[in-house]
């Protein structure tokens, strides 16, 4: 463990708390992509299946339990509790364009061709692109509530902080995880446009609005 990874994981936790908080205070899931949230459930279930056979640490174990359960809870909030506030006509990104290619890529580019490794690799690739439906939805509406942008910023910071973590691990432990690194860089890159608007508008006290 190093400070970058710890802060990254904390940013990830923060993003989840912000999202749940947003839904509770506004009593709505407006502006939240159900598809992206469903993809995160799939990401966590396929990656953390090793809960049952691999022991890393209490930290690792408890975080995995938290990510699986919180993502299911969020899906429940969007799909049942606040369903009347969900507008499916705005959440139209085709997830099969993400899930299919990620699965094929996982079959081709993996560390070991077995069931658990392929699921892990699939989850890494899918996580990298799972934000697409959410970004697509914001592109369509051209705006976002401020608290939703805080959620996305924390989520982007989480993966961005993993990059210095990998650099640090390379120099201190000599470990390199090319699959995680490439996917992580792609994942972080997807946030660049968002971060630009977030920093230049939201952090200056303005509303998040995309140029028409």
């Amino acid at each position: 463990m190093n400070v970058f990874r710890l802060l990254g994981d904390l940013a990830h936790l923060a993003s989840i708390f912000i999202l749940v908080h947003k839904m509770h205070i506004t009593r709505s899931c407006r502006g939240i992509s159900f598809k992206t949230q469903a993809l995160y459930v799939l990401v966590f279930l396929t990656r953390y299946l090793d809960l049952f056979w691999a022991w890393i640490s209490w930290y690792n174990f408890l975080m995995k339990i938290f990510f699986i359960s919180s993502s299911c809870y969020i899906l429940y909030l969007v799909h049942y509790r606040f369903r009347p506030t969900y507008d499916p006509s705005l959440d139209t990104f085709k997830v099969e364009y993400l899930v299919g290619p990620c699965f094929v890529l996982a079959l081709i580019f993996n560390y070991h061709f077995d069931f658990s490794e392929i699921l892990w690799t699939f989850s890494i690739y899918l996580e990298a692109v799972a934000i697409f439906p959410q970004l697509f939805m914001m592109q369509r509406t051209g705006e976002a509530e401020t608290i939703t942008t805080h959620y996305l910023a924390a989520l982007g910071v989480y993966r961005a902080l993993y990059i210095p973590n990998w650099i640090y691990r390379y120099y201190t432990e000599g470990t390199v995880d090319p699959i995680a690194i490439v996917a992580g860089i792609v994942q972080t890159g997807l946030y660049l446009d968002f971060f630009y608007v977030y920093v230049t508008k939201v952090l200056q006290g303005q509303k998040f609005e995309l140029p028409a």
């Binding site: 990874r5 994981d9 990830h12 990656r47 090793d50 691999a54 890393i56 640490s57 690792n60 975080m63 995995k64 990510f67 560390y111 070991h112 490794e117 892990w120 993993y162 973590n165 995880d177 995680a180």
Partner: peptide
């Protein structure tokens, strides 16, 4: 062959 890959990151 990396048959025993340990994924210690979240």
């Amino acid at each position: 062959d990396e048959g025993n890959v340990v994924h210690d990151e979240l």
